[in-house]
Design a protein around this nucleic acid. Structure first.
Length: 587
DNA sequence: GCCGTTTTCGGCCCGACTGTTTTCAGTCG
């Protein structure tokens, strides 16, 4: 059973407890919710943790849930879970996928209409709604019946709470809304918050905060946004829209003197905020988007500035990217947060595909070597490394391969001189299934260094894959492992690797792991970056650009590095050209 | 059911909006 399925099951337990008696099971609900979130975010499969005896090291998994997980892995089911779910039709959990459907509403409808087949439940429900069978039920009316019909329709068109969007796409949508808001005389300040501000690789809703002395007028203006499909809700302080493209935009307004509190509140994450509020509670303070309230005197303290908000509860400012309640709060209390890497620290990169006709095994870039160098200069870089895919080994003889690479090297030298710009002559070399590199020794000799990566035969046993990668990295010219997990966001999970072993090998042998900035890769992911940083493994942030404009994606890789708590010292390409040269000569 | 630089027992965030209600339940973030 994969982690995703396990966390889904735990969420069904959460829903079941809510349906059966929300008040009675209040704290079990929180506990199972936390365990489900935690397991979903793991970078190791539960079955492996179980085999290693490390189940209780998962945050949110204690004695009881550990036992339940063991039972699940051993027997494929859990008696206690069956007990909890007893009497609740499976269709309930399917209905919950529809926006606006929570556990209770889903259960009421599934039970009342006796929806036995989960696969048909949504269609059957739609039929009952259209035949006017829902409006008469207790707690339902004409309006909610109509809402159900629309929600199901939108759900089927994949609108609302379905797949999340890639970070740059979310950024573009937010920019458009912000540009619209800035045109209003009522809007004093506006900013995108939520998971977008925290720079998560995938973003669900777009959250936007506005400072305004005229909240009603601001919200009226917002609901007239040209890209809207419909208004989901509209109150005195918040409003939500669905766009024609199917994305949800949430708006919150506070007066300018409370904007700092609003930024803090709306940036999240949920767990970060809950933890902060628990700390504040012990000081008799209550936190909200309005400010900080003293629960004894009832006085509300307002904050225009987010930094001062944190300071008021005894913390230093916490960068949005690390607000996930994974230890940042404790360190902020002691003023011991690391200084995170910034975009301006980046001096160059090593994963650039030019359009030089090298007859590669995979996709060629579209811009010339000169155009890529021009772009690097625009970005203020000191150097770049060219890493086109190795020429296809099945289509070329050894001397042809070497000749192609030599010709490319000459082209790089020429361009480098013409632009007076430092370059590295590299290659992105495939690690073949047996762990050997897809270039002959004589070809590797004429490179400054090589990026190596997996591009074939992903379905491999975890240990075999780990051996394969390590064997590939063992070659002295192999310095950087590109996109180490091979994941593609919203497409595929990536192959399995034993990162404890790989990190250890990299540290001992001066090998560098890539943080790939390509929007649907962002690989390594934040959790693994954090682990690499803790193990003091060197990282590099590359864009894997196949066109010059893609070199601007560097910000997304830097953000993931920040999410993984990386400092400048952890990142290879914060070093100068001469330092890099030395680094590549190390064995 | 989990967790611990005020606790191994006694805590566990805070508020918005909608629809069906006449004071609240459900959903969401």
């Amino acid at each position: 059973m994969k982690n995703k399925e396990i966390s889904k099951l735990l969420r069904e337990i959460v829903a079941s407890y809510i349906i059966k008696n929300e008040a009675k099971y209040r704290f079990q609900i929180i506990a199972y919710q936390n365990a489900a979130d935690s397991i979903e975010g793991l970078n190791t499969q539960i079955k492996d943790l179980y085999a290693e005896g490390n189940l209780d090291k998962i945050p949110g998994v204690g004695e009881t849930i550990k036992k339940r997980l063991e039972e699940l892995l051993k027997t494929g089911q859990v008696k206690h879970f069956n007990e909890v779910k007893k009497g609740i039709p499976d269709s309930t959990f399917i209905l919950m996928e529809i926006p606006g459907f929570g556990p209770k509403k889903s259960y009421k409808l599934a039970a009342h209409f006796n929806l036995k087949n989960p696969e048909k439940a949504i269609d059957e429900l739609l039929k009952f709604a259209k035949n006017n069978k829902i409006a008469g039920l207790e707690g339902f009316g004409e309006k909610s019946q109509a809402d159900i019909i629309r929600s199901v329709d939108e759900y089927k068109k994949s609108m609302g709470k379905t797949t999340k969007m890639l970070l740059p796409y979310a950024h573009d949508i937010a920019s458009d809304v912000l540009a619209y808001l800035k045109k209003s005389k009522y809007v004093e300040k506006s900013e995108a918050l939520g998971s977008l501000r925290r720079m998560k690789p995938l973003v669900g809703d777009i959250d936007i905060a506005v400072a305004s002395k005229w909240p009603n007028e601001t919200i009226d203006y917002f609901t007239k946004y040209p890209g809207k499909e419909r208004v989901i809700e509209k109150g005195p302080a918040t409003s939500s829209l669905l766009t024609t493209a199917g994305n949800q935009i949430d708006l919150m307004v506070q007066p300018p003197d409370s904007f700092g509190a609003l930024l803090q509140h709306f940036t999240g994450s949920k767990n970060h905020n809950i933890h902060l509020r628990e700390i504040a509670l012990k000081k008799n303070l209550s936190l909200s988007e309005r400010g900080i309230k003293n629960s004894k005197t009832k006085k509300l303290y307002k904050f225009e500035d987010e930094k001062k908000f944190y300071e008021a509860i005894g913390l230093t400012f916490i960068p949005p990217e690390i607000r996930e309640d994974t230890g940042e709060i404790e360190l902020a209390q002691k003023n011991k947060l690391p200084k995170l890497i910034e975009l301006k620290d980046i001096k160059g990169e090593f994963h650039i595909h030019s359009g030089f006709p090298i007859e590669p095994s995979h996709d060629l870039g579209i811009n010339s070597i000169e155009e890529m160098i021009f772009q690097a200069k625009e970005l203020g870089y000191e150097y770049i490394g060219f890493s086109e895919h190795n020429p296809s080994i099945s289509k070329h003889k050894e001397n042809q391969l070497i000749d192609l690479i030599k010709r490319r090297n000459d082209e790089i030298d020429k361009a480098s001189q013409k632009f007076n710009f430092q370059t590295f002559k590299m290659m992105e070399t495939d690690i073949l299934p047996d762990g050997s590199l897809a270039l002959p020794e004589k070809a590797l000799e004429i490179l400054d260094a090589s990026v190596v990566s997996i591009h074939s035969v992903f379905k491999m046993d975890k240990n075999q894959m780990t051996d394969r990668i390590i064997k590939g990295l063992t070659h002295p010219k192999a310095k950087i492992l590109a996109h180490p997990t091979g994941r593609l966001l919203n497409e595929r999970a990536g192959y399995e690797v034993d990162f404890d072993i790989l990190f250890d090998f990299c540290k001992k042998n001066n090998k560098i792991l890539e943080i790939n900035s390509y929007p649907n890769r962002l690989d390594l992911g934040d959790n693994l970056i954090r682990k690499a940083v803790e193990m003091m493994v060197k990282l590099v942030i590359n864009t894997d650009s196949h066109a010059s404009y893609q070199m601007n994606n560097m910000i997304y890789g830097v953000s993931q590095a920040r999410r993984g708590w990386a400092s400048k010292d952890d990142i290879l390409n914060s070093l100068s050209y001469n330092e890099i040269k030395k680094e590549f000569k190390k064995n």
